[in-house]
Design a binder for these strands. Structure first.
Lengths: 225, 225, 225, 225
DNA sequence: GATGAATGAGGCTTCATTCAT
DNA sequence: CATGAATGAAGCCTCATTCAT
């Protein structure tokens, strides 16, 4: 699947060939852009778009600000690239849910993937969350245009399971909203959760417990008595 | 209950009496401060701390920037006041859950209160969420010191219900994390949800559906088969 | 003697009678103005004109800023009043030097008066010094117009003593400049002097030693061998 | 000798190499910093720290405010650099006084150097004076820690001369205070002196007369009858 | 007399971005 | 490719001063 946030998105600052078309990025360009995205992910996650500074990103990426601006025209372009990346990561787990599988197994696996995402890509999750929180100015369109369709497909699966009596009747959309929220919270609100658990930070055991509790709750809630 | 984020918190720019204690705020002071908090809530929710500008808040509050700074020494003080307000609103629903009530009713009522909060105070919820998202720099301590204890009390209730066989065994903390996430998402991530539902914004019916789905799911999940 | 810095000087903010003439200041007006001048002296001495704030002065004077501005139209007026005061204090010691006295005694007494001034009115001395340092924008005229004449009178005394062979020939102006500088330095530069002497602040003994050393030096330097 | 006001002092805004050490300043950096210090000297001398504005300094230095802030992180850093410069100039004349020289010649030469400093670097002298006047907040430590020792060395020379009967017994510290004050006054208080002498400004003849009068007075005062 | 409320100008600093090398 | 130099817009905050009670 290819989701694209915006057109301006597809073309960073890179020089063009004489006829105005973009050239294929050189090896070093791809390399540097990857470093920048990685650095940007961390900085945007912590400080938000306005709060982040190009200097911070450049430093974390180990290059000068001016050099960074050689690869990305402006701050917003970095941000959009970062968002694009998070978007792809966000959608991935959903893709794998299969209509012909066993509902319990499929749902359990989906929850597991989402929890793993929160655990391994908490920073990306937070960038995504912050964008949504602010009204999703850069994501609204792509969500409405592309992601909605994907969700609709999966919702149909849920609905089919319910119609077949394999799970209780439930609004599939709100089921997804609940699963998303309940899994992502371990990335997005981990500082609150860690504070409540009186730990310095969440560890592997916490994520395991989260997954188990959540699977129990949801599967018990979903499966027919 | 009185939660206090910080000491500096307790006193805006207002003049003091000779002995250094705060005087009782005049009517107009309370009025203006209320207007500022209200405006700040909206602006901080949309743009985050760094992204918000005093000018925006002042304009929304219908006063000049300088006048606003007559009531709050600096931007951070406004923000802390706003956070304080959201914190109090956030904790309130938890307080009402009663150990001697019927588990199903109590949990259902708790979820309803949380959903109502998301519906009626979405802006406050977002400010709170954004603070947590950024690592809760201003809330970490009060969560660890005060809120944790409150949650522990309610967790004990859940545990007691489970021990009495009234509900299934479940980790009470993760249950709360799930409920919080699943309810607050309708405030914090409403723009995503609305986009998925292909609506311009969430309406009352959406919140009702959310509440119903969530109650079904959680209660089915919790109550003994 | 009456030295007047400027015309605007003669009339603070005080209300006028109906025919526009100033009224005689009431007792409370004189009282408050005295408090303000005293406070202003300290604040201007420490922070300079720009660095001083009306708030600081008001606080030190124990009144509200607005109230202070009831007595003085603006910051500059306070400053000018303060300067006026320092000017009068500065000129006083010079007035007492008598032509018909014994040169040694007169000069010794003059130095003693100047040292006493530095000791007892260090703050005023510093305000005066700071004004001069900045080019004496408010004092230049009155120095040229009034003080110069006073100095000229005393210079004539010195010259007469020299002509009479009571003291060596010396340029009387530069003699005064030396005495002024050498005595005032114990007020104006006391922080440097205290640091060199490795003390927290100058004490009575230091001023005594200063006076003695200075008198010895100058009298030995002046009196005919 | 190397006097250092503060650590923060040693490094303007300039970029660092990866290991955090400062790089050698480029030619243009040294150039611009010199221009800034020169401009700062004049502006701080006239208006004091608070009274001076970065804009004024930038304009005098012939660059934009922002560009100036590219070289110095903040106003205080400029000021500290300026102070550092004046400090070095202030201490220099003291260093050359030699114990094995003839007292009369050495003292005369010292006075001459101090007068020359007042004449040629009046602006620096005033910046230094203003700092001291305000309580030497930035110089107190370096005076107490470093300069005091230098003065102590020279004081020992004076004391040795006195013990050897080459000059009268005198407190060497207060002797220095007098010489400093009496020479620096021609820089610091030149506007007052010029007004008393009824001249627009001091000229070479005035400094010569000052030097001569002062040398006469002090040497007559010091040398054994 | 005295104080609370309000304002506008000005100053410091940050930061994205552009220019030159 | 990469960096140093330069800029302008914008934001926070201070402060003298005025208005209204």
């Amino acid at each position: 699947m290819s989701l694209s946030i915006q057109q301006k998105f597809e073309a960073p600052a890179m020089p063009r060939s004489d006829d105005g078309r973009r050239r294929k990025p050189t090896r070093i360009q791809s390399l540097r852009q990857g470093e920048i995205i990685k650095a940007g992910l961390e900085v945007f996650a912590r400080y938000g778009f306005k709060g982040a500074t190009i200097d911070q990103i450049a430093e974390k990426a180990g290059m000068s600000k001016t050099n960074l601006l050689y690869y990305y025209r402006c701050k917003e372009d970095i941000y959009l690239s970062v968002l694009q990346r998070t978007l792809e990561m966000w959608i991935a787990p959903l893709e794998e849910m299969r209509a012909d599988g066993d509902p319990a197994l499929e749902i359990r696996a989906y929850i597991a993937r989402k929890i793993r995402f929160s655990r391994e890509h908490a920073v990306a999750s937070r960038v995504f969350a912050m964008e949504i929180l602010q009204g999703a100015p850069n994501l609204e369109r792509v969500i409405r245009d592309d992601i909605r369709a994907h969700v609709e497909e999966r919702a149909a699966v849920i609905r089919a399971w319910a119609d077949a009596g394999k799970i209780r009747k439930i609004d599939p959309y709100h089921l997804f909203f609940t699963i998303w929220a309940a899994t992502q919270t371990y990335a997005d609100f981990s500082s609150q959760i860690a504070a409540i658990l009186d730990k310095p930070a969440l560890d592997g055991g916490d994520f395991d417990a989260a997954e188990e509790t959540l699977c129990d709750l949801i599967l018990n809630g979903l499966l027919p008595g």
